[in-house]
Design a protein around this nucleic acid. Sequence first.
DNA 1: ACAAAATGATACTAATGTGGTATCATTTAA
DNA 2: TTAAATGATACCACATTAGTATCATTTTGT
Lengths: 133, 133
Amino acid sequence: MKLITRDTDYALRAICFIAKNKGKIVSVSEIEQELKIPRPFLRKILQILNKKKILISYKGIGGGFTLVDSFKGITLIDLMRAFQGPLHINECLFKKAKCPNTKKCPIRKKIKNIEQYVLKELGSVTLYSLVAK
Amino acid sequence: MKLITRDTDYALRAICFIAKNKGKIVSVSEIEQELKIPRPFLRKILQILNKKKILISYKGIGGGFTLVDSFKGITLIDLMRAFQGPLHINECLFKKAKCPNTKKCPIRKKIKNIEQYVLKELGSVTLYSLVAK
DNA sequence: ACAAAATGATACTAATGTGGTATCATTTAA
DNA sequence: TTAAATGATACCACATTAGTATCATTTTGT
């Protein structure tokens, strides 16, 4: 059971590195060298971060990526959603049929509670807090 | 992100049904008819439940399954472990390398906390509590 | 003893998700 | 106008999950 997938993980590390170079435009090559992430995969990840407005990209010679201005408001869960889609702890438990012995399945409620807790926790971690010493 | 897989889900429903027929030996055919779970898959699931000592099986004509005597002590997490193995929310995040900007990665701690919470919650739900009206 | 009805064991197949690659198009600075 | 960067997109490989198929074993009734 994985809460965080590899692309999310890589994204986080890349962001940390970009944040370290405050203000500077950082290219794929630089990140690749530092973090040893396979280049094509890294490119894909950065492109997604750009689309999701977590990074800003600059094309052409001297191009690369910087943090978005609103970076301090972005949380771990935003990052996870970018790569892992909407986070439902369990999507379809008892969707088709209910346990015949219960009218309101108590397990569903429990799962919902757990889900909400997890989302709250993940949503409380800003990427900035991970970057700042 | 799935916390509970299909076999765990099916297992839970099957157990609910068996519990309803208190004491009676319930065959695969009966469960299949009631819950519309594909028979070979259901058989596999029930065999696992037997091996994990959550159900008792009886072979031969009139055979089938009943709940184990210690049923009241079995929790949702036991069921999940039977099908999904040991439950680690995240196994290897930052295993190979740490985010270069942090010495003790705060995210790792957060994940650990979430994991412990989830395990505690799931371990607090007895299957019996789901079955009992 | 034996046949039928049940589960046990095991190996295989199909579908999906994750991790990763390859290639061409587009933009931009020198 | 060319080289260096990212954008878009399609593809491939592997692992996990979901499900099937088949034969072996046990048990009960006749």
